[in-house]
């Protein structure tokens, strides 16, 4: 660390360490704690180790059974894929209808009072913390299996996400235009229209496109709990061990998801 000289004035060799002893000890403790947690997890987790060692072989075997993909049900898969995209799009649109007012009351600077603020915040947290597939379970229980349950599941899950980002955008707006509109005699509606909307519009488009892209991915799993879309065919193929059909479905999902990403990044560039 530093050069030490003893009384005789002879200099000792320079020493340098990357960390001080205290830092080293701290790091060691962090490593130790992490190792202990992992050890605990591995010991108590119900893992059948022979399965772990045979996993690569099993996975390879599964891929073997998937090739070549079976295109005979191409028609049905195509229709289900379109249905999946419809679910994603309609759900995104529906979620916006609910998310915008939620964002308005969940943003500190626009919410009418503290009660509405907490209602807004509650909606954000409750909708966002429950996963799509769990929403789907719930809506399937209520409305029966089908696309409506799927649309509602995706829409509900999206509300929190969209509204949270929009509320943050509203909270971060520049106050000056709002002041100017208020000074010109504008009421709340006019302030919203002239002071707030123009500032958050780019965020609105960006968030919508982003969520649509995510929703396409999410809507591929709805079918696994009976809520419509391509997942139904996938589940059916897997249950009946038609692995080659399952492979076709997976490829179809891959294509649509990548296409969705390309479309959304192109849209983002257009509107921003």
């Amino acid at each position: 660390m530093t050069r030490a000289r003893d009384a005789s004035g002879v200099s000792e060799p320079y020493r340098w360490q990357r960390y001080t002893t205290a830092e080293r000890l701290g790091r060691f403790l962090i490593y130790l704690a992490s190792a202990a947690i992992v050890f605990w997890a591995l010991r108590t987790l119900d893992i059948f180790w022979p399965w772990v060692w045979s996993a690569p072989a099993e996975i390879a075997d599964l891929f073997g059974r998937m090739t070549p993909p079976d295109l005979r049900r191409g028609d049905a898969i195509l229709r289900a894929m379109i249905e999946t995209i419809h679910i994603a799009t309609l759900a995104t649109a529906l979620s916006l209808l609910i998310a915008l007012p939620t964002a308005y009351i969940a943003a500190q600077n626009t919410t009418p009072n503290s009660v509405t603020l907490w209602i807004g915040r509650f909606i954000l947290v409750a909708t966002r913390s429950v996963n799509t597939i769990i929403w789907a379970l719930l809506f399937v229980a209520i409305f029966g299996p089908g696309v409506l349950a799927g649309i509602l599941a995706i829409a509900f899950r999206s509300i929190g996400f969209t509204a949270k980002l929009m509320a943050e955008a509203i909270e971060e707006i520049d106050r000056k235009p709002v002041e100017a509109v208020t000074a010109a005699g504008g009421d709340k509606g006019k302030v919203l229209l002239y002071g707030i909307v123009p500032q958050v519009l780019p965020t609105f488009f960006a968030v919508t496109i982003l969520r649509w892209d995510i929703n396409i991915r999410e809507s591929t799993v709805l079918g696994l709990v009976g809520a419509g879309g391509i997942g139904m065919i996938l589940q059916g193929a897997i249950d009946t061990f038609q692995w080659q059909t399952a492979a076709t479905v997976l490829i179809a999902i891959l294509i649509v998801v990548i296409a969705g990403e390309v479309v959304s990044s192109a849209l983002r560039k257009r509107v921003l």
């Binding site: 050069r3 060799p13 320079y14 020493r15 340098w16 360490q17 990357r18």
Partner: peptide, 13 residues
């Protein structure tokens, strides 16, 4: 590991 030869450390100082 940042374990450089002593000569290097001397030179650095």
């Amino acid at each position: 590991t940042r374990r450089y030869p002593q000569d290097d450390v001397d030179r650095a100082f």
